[in-house]
């Protein structure tokens, strides 16, 4: 299904019925508000939230030309490595596309920044950014990627690249590929029993003697707590 068809479905489906709801009685609540486009956030959403996600997902901010530029840029910022995929493989451009609509304050700096790349490339090389050689592309990027070395007339480009670096990095490290590369171990049921011993030792720590008897013992996690009248745990 392409975006246009999605849009049609959206307006004849959930959005239209959502509009109706404010005008009819609670009995008519049986109407279908389920999302028609995948990708919206699940879990306890209000109808307004579902409609908003659907609307944003059905719209496209970047032109094809801009999107091509974005794909190149995000992979310069987060390239593939021996042990990990690239930003485009991690779905970063789709994430940035969504954020442009979710947080419209990004739109003008992003659009203007991408345009500036072409303007600068044209002034300097007589070609648009995407038509530059790899070496020339990196010459342009190096002018705006290092805030402390950049010249004053490049500050606008630096601001643009800071924003792009933020979005690309955050998009990358909140993806499955990024989690694997980072080595994040959590988000799964477990029984916390403190910092692993070898890590404690490495940093020169021990748990305080005073609290050893007080801290949770994982083997007691199944026992229903009982107290004496003084508030001491007895079972």
């Amino acid at each position: 299904m392409n975006r246009r068809e999605n849009l049609k479905l959206l307006f004849t489906g959930s959005l239209a019925s959502g509009f109706l709801l404010t005008h009819c009685s609670p009995k008519d609540k049986e109407l279908d508000y389920s999302p028609k486009i995948t990708g919206g956030t699940p879990g306890g959403r209000t109808q307004e939230e579902i409609l908003r996600d659907q609307k944003l997902l059905s719209e496209t901010f970047f032109t094809d030309e801009e999107r091509k530029k974005l794909d190149v840029l995000v992979d310069i910022i987060m390239p593939a490595g021996d042990d990990s995929g690239s930003a485009t493989e991690a779905g970063v451009p789709d994430f940035i596309e969504f954020m442009m609509k979710d947080y419209p304050a990004y739109q003008t700096p992003m659009r203007g920044g991408l345009m500036w790349l072409d303007n600068y490339s044209d002034d300097t090389y007589g070609k648009k950014f995407l038509e530059l050689s790899e070496k020339e592309k990196m010459e342009v990027i190096d002018l705006i990627a290092w805030p402390e070395k950049a010249s004053d007339d490049m500050k606008g480009g630096v601001m643009f690249f800071n924003m792009l670096r933020n979005l690309t990095s955050t998009g990358y490290f909140t993806s499955e590929i990024g989690f694997k590369y980072l080595g994040y171990k959590g988000n799964t049921p477990n029984a916390w029993d403190g910092v692993p011993n070898e890590v404690l030792k490495k940093h020169g720590f021990e748990y305080p003697e005073k609290y050893l008897a007080v801290y949770l013992k994982p083997e007691e996690r199944g026992q229903i707590a009982q107290w004496d009248d003084e508030g001491n745990l007895i079972g």
Binding site: G44, G91, D102, E176, N187
Partner: peptide, 26 residues
Amino acid sequence: DPAKEEDRTQLRPPWESPRRGGGTRI
């Protein structure tokens, strides 16, 4: 009711949100 699957956000990784868990007005 967070125990109902349709209301659950617990244990969801960030990529299940198109804004990767970012805040919204609501």
